Computed example of a mutant assay.
Amino acid sequence: MGAVYLWQSRPTSHPLPPPAPIAAPHTSANRPTATVMVHVTGKVRTPGVYTLPAGARVTDALKAAGGLRDGAHPGVLNLARRLLDGEQLAVGTKPASQPPGAITTSPLDPTATVIDLNTATIAQLEQLPGVGEVLATRIATYRDTQGGFRSIDQLKEVSGIGDRKFADLKDKVRI
């Protein structure tokens, strides 16, 4: 009798149900949206403000604006660059020695430089105190993946920037 009981109480396997499909990600108020909004102006067929998917490139914004006008050239624009939310693309402008507005002076101290986090190059970010090539690259990568900085406090979210480094940088940058 004991053998029958042991035989009937042995574990049996049951197949698992198929996995449920993965739902599309949803956007919450705390996460960046999946779009960028850019203002395209200058020598394009239809200047205006356009909403494009996050990760869109300058060339995508030009297409959204109807393309270049006849005989126009994109000027100094890097057509392969990812767009930042809220930026303006001036098409067919004369070249500048640096991105417009990337480096300015402080109104309180005209000798102090203030760097725009959303438009500065890696080389310009390296001019900040205590920022080398690696940290400048991290700042630029964070900016590109997050759709730009919306607040200077977001610098604290960049790997390698703690409270002390942030205190050194906050008066030397702007958005």
Score class of each variant (00 low, 15 high):
residue 1 M to E: 13
residue 2 G to N: 12
residue 3 A to G: 08
residue 4 V to M: 11
residue 4 V to F: 14
residue 5 Y to C: 01
residue 7 W to Y: 13
residue 8 Q to G: 02
residue 9 S to W: 05
residue 17 P to M: 11
residue 22 I to Q: 12
residue 24 A to H: 09
residue 27 T to L: 09
residue 32 P to A: 06
residue 33 T to W: 00
residue 34 A to K: 07
residue 37 M to T: 15
residue 41 T to W: 01
residue 53 P to C: 01
residue 55 G to S: 10
residue 57 R to T: 07
residue 59 T to N: 10
residue 59 T to L: 12
residue 60 D to H: 13
residue 61 A to T: 08
residue 61 A to R: 00
residue 63 K to R: 13
residue 63 K to A: 14
residue 65 A to T: 02
residue 66 G to R: 01
residue 67 G to K: 01
residue 69 R to L: 15
residue 70 D to S: 12
residue 70 D to Y: 11
residue 73 H to C: 00
residue 77 L to E: 02
residue 77 L to M: 05
residue 79 L to A: 07
residue 81 R to E: 14
residue 82 R to G: 01
residue 83 L to C: 06
residue 84 L to I: 15
residue 91 V to Q: 01
residue 93 T to W: 09
residue 94 K to R: 11
residue 97 S to R: 08
residue 97 S to N: 08
residue 101 G to K: 02
residue 105 T to D: 03
residue 106 S to N: 15
residue 106 S to M: 11
residue 106 S to V: 10
residue 113 T to C: 03
residue 114 V to M: 09
residue 115 I to P: 01
residue 118 N to T: 03
residue 118 N to Y: 03
residue 120 A to W: 08
residue 124 Q to D: 03
residue 129 P to N: 10
residue 131 V to A: 04
residue 131 V to N: 00
residue 132 G to Q: 09
residue 132 G to P: 05
residue 134 V to L: 11
residue 134 V to G: 05
residue 137 T to A: 11
residue 141 T to R: 13
residue 143 R to L: 07
residue 147 G to I: 06
residue 147 G to V: 07
residue 150 R to H: 15
residue 153 D to S: 14
residue 153 D to R: 14
residue 153 D to Q: 15
residue 156 K to D: 11
residue 160 G to R: 08
residue 160 G to V: 13
residue 161 I to Y: 05
residue 161 I to Q: 08
residue 163 D to Q: 13
residue 164 R to F: 01
residue 164 R to V: 14
residue 166 F to P: 04
residue 167 A to H: 10
residue 167 A to Y: 04
residue 168 D to W: 06
residue 168 D to Y: 07
residue 169 L to V: 08
residue 170 K to S: 11
residue 170 K to A: 10
residue 171 D to W: 04
